[in-house]
Structures are given as C-alpha cells and as structure tokens.
Amino acid sequence: MESNNGGGSAALIGSSGTVILSPPQQQQQTVDVHQLPCCIKSNGPSDVSNYFKPKSSGIEVDGGLELKEAFYRGRNLQGFTVPLPEGYSGFIIGKKNSNKDKTKKTAGTGKAPEISSNSSENHWETLAKCGNMTFWNHDSLPSQDDASMRVFHWFAVAKALHEPVSAEELT
C-alpha cells in the first residue's frame, strides 16, 4: 500500500463502479476483522488464527466493553470488540475481475492493486461478512474517544440527515 507521487488522481474523481453485496453462488462466511495500530506492508492471506491469539482480560473498559490483549511483532496490543450498530452489516469486498469470470481478491494479490482509470473495471463483490470489529491500540487502553470509535458517530448523523421530514416538523 505505497503511495505514488504521480498526479492524475483527480481525474478519477467522479468515476463510478459497482459493489455487489450478495454474490448468488457464494456462501457468505462471517469473519473476524481486526484493526491494528500499525501498517503491515503486505497484502495477502496469512494464517492469522494460528498466530494472532487475542486473550480476554475479564476487565471492562470504557462503554462496558471487555478489554482484550494480544501481541503482534513483540508489541503489546490492547483492544476491544465492537458490535456493529443495529441495522448495519460489515462486508469484506474484493475487486471483481472483468476479464475473467473469477474474483480477484484485494487480499490475495500480494501487492496493492492499481487504481484503474477504466471505470468499467471498478466492480467489487463480497468475499465475507463481519458482524463486529476489533480495534487495537499499542500501549494504551481502547476508549470510546479513539478516532476509530468516533467513526461510528457518523451513523447517527447520517440517519438524522436522511430521515424523511414531516410537514409538521418544518413549522
């Protein structure tokens, strides 16, 4: 996931694509999603469940969530698992390869996929679902004030913004 210094990205703004959330032939698997406080410069599958072993502490932190502890590359991580708000679902999506009738996983290419300027290739489909996310901090207790947690505030704002307004409410 390296950035490039070339220009031309602006030309892409406004291009469109599709995200297919329910591929008919694929049984949707529910997976655990972890957000780590580091950048792993690699894309691809790994035997995460054999190496990443979060442990529950039995201690409740901010917001009544249970504190978890894990280690990654020698660092101590502290985190909690946050259920997605009612009415929301999490999807792991991968880029759909238009040339072949086969899914080219974002997570399976071994390097960062190129942004295609051809909008017809910008099609994504669901690889798995998640019902919660685990957010990890390095050396600090997870909190509702963490930037990753504050992202969820958007849901309430979006709801208020998009909710139909009745005639009485306008007066």
Partner: peptide, 12 residues
Amino acid sequence: LSNLGFTGGKRN
C-alpha cells in the same frame, strides 16, 4: 491508518 485495509489503491 484509518484507511489501511479499506483502501488498496495507490494514493497521492
């Protein structure tokens, strides 16, 4: 970091 894992694209 907030983008890691969510965007795979090259970014300026």
